[in-house]
């Protein structure tokens, strides 16, 4: 799993690449301080080819901590396989999901 960061309209976009699963999820949190601080971010999932329930739990945990501290997480670019996991678990009710990471950053900046 590789993690990249970039800024867009003042909002950090964290791009995850690879498998976000039970083995990689614990390491993800340590790889980017943007995931654990209080700022609003966008997580670009276009490079994630596999997501399991531990990976989902990791995203849910990030959202909970951010929101408790006044920040937010938007998700972008879920492929069909990821969408299925969100659909079955109803996690789609927790996240704003965009089909474009930079556009998501734009809407986050406006708020």
């Amino acid at each position: 799993m590789t993690v990249n960061e970039k800024k867009c309209k003042g909002i950090t976009i964290v791009s995850l690449n690879g498998s976000l699963d039970a083995a990689s999820a614990p390491g993800v949190l340590n790889s980017s301080s943007a995931l654990t601080d209080t700022q609003s971010i966008v997580i670009d999932l276009s490079g994630v080819d596999f997501l399991d329930s531990s990976g989902l739990g990791c995203l849910v945990g990030i959202a909970r901590k951010k929101r408790e501290q006044g920040g937010d997480v938007r998700l972008a670019c879920l492929n069909e396989k990821l969408r299925k996991v969100f659909d079955i678990t109803r996690a789609s009710r927790l996240f704003d999901i965009y089909d474009d990471a930079e556009y998501a950053a734009g809407t986050a900046a406006k708020k």
């Binding site: 969408r83 999901i97 965009y98 089909d99 556009y103």
Partner: peptide, 20 residues
């Protein structure tokens, strides 16, 4: 297919599907 939140209005829906 795409997911939205319960209280998203039509503008928010279009935003979330901006690329499409």
């Amino acid at each position: 297919y795409a997911s939205i939140l319960v209280d998203d209005d039509l503008d928010a829906v279009m935003d979330k599907n901006a690329r499409y």
